[in-house]
Design a binder for these strands. Structure first.
Lengths: 140, 140
DNA sequence: TTAATTACTTGCAAATCGCAAGTAATAATC
DNA sequence: GATTATTACTTGCGATTTGCAAGTAATTAA
């Protein structure tokens, strides 16, 4: 499963070898900002990912140690997916995508959702808050 | 050419509808950090993009107004590609990818190139410097 | 005037995507 | 306790995208 191949030795291109596709960062965003953590949660999101793609991407993310997968003791059916610290550390990338979007995409896509206002007044505060909050809600 | 379709109204997913693939941000990086600006420049980079993919992506980036294409008055052959302000404003995304890579990818890919040291001591300074510098070198 | 360079296009095989359908295990309901 | 629903998948298949090789057309250099 974990057949990572890197195009070259550039750190930026290498990051994109892992994260640079249509779905990987979307799934991380759904976990971080929308508290999604089960297969069904991801399927129900607005982006409309297909089941086979979701299944493949979750395995990919797990093999890269960006997320973990476990079952709760009282439920043998539902898998809970959680961001690892490595996954959580992609928060600044996601926030910069939101900022770029706010600045450049509204004329192309007028009905874009509003971003958290804090994104423009205290970016680092927002990032810290999101990470702290995520950790808090996922101690177990 | 410009057949942008957005999956949904999330700003982050929408940014990834434009930038979230294997090559788009790599080309922007090559322009911003490696001063590449001709078809040949891009082809010669370590990432090894194929000619047909490069051609398609340059048109895509131009149609989105992230880059411009023009010929110099003294050379009717070579096209010069340049980042627009919209393209330049993706610099923070690229820098955050480099930071994430520095932090998380070295154990997976030990021979990664060193990033500019400033990235960890004065991130905003580096971003400002890169943008100012790029503008200076591309006034014409 | 011949050769080289640049910026492409075309063809094709392989890989990936995305929809639909099916399955297997567990949990909830009657 | 049997039936139904839910969750997390897998499989099949057609469509799209990728990446390599080869070819082309315009311009420039030798």
């Amino acid at each position: 499963m974990n057949d990572v191949t890197f195009r070259c030795d550039c750190p930026i291109s290498s990051a994109l070898d892992l994260l640079g596709d249509k779905w990987t960062l979307v799934i991380i965003k759904q976990m971080l900002l929308e508290n999604r953590r089960t297969f069904k949660d991801f399927l129900e999101a607005d982006e409309g990912i297909a089941t086979n793609i979701l299944s493949t991407r979750l395995k990919w993310l797990e093999s890269l140690d960006l997320i973990t997968k476990e079952k709760l003791p009282d439920n043998k059916k539902v898998n809970i997916y959680r961001l690892t610290e490595k996954g959580l550390s992609s928060t600044p990338i996601i926030i910069e995508l939101a900022i770029w979007s706010d600045k450049n995409l509204r004329q192309l896509h007028p009905i874009l959702q509003e971003s958290n206002a804090m994104i423009h007044t205290d970016k680092q505060g927002l990032i810290d808050h999101l990470i702290t909050n995520y950790r808090k809600q996922n101690l177990e």
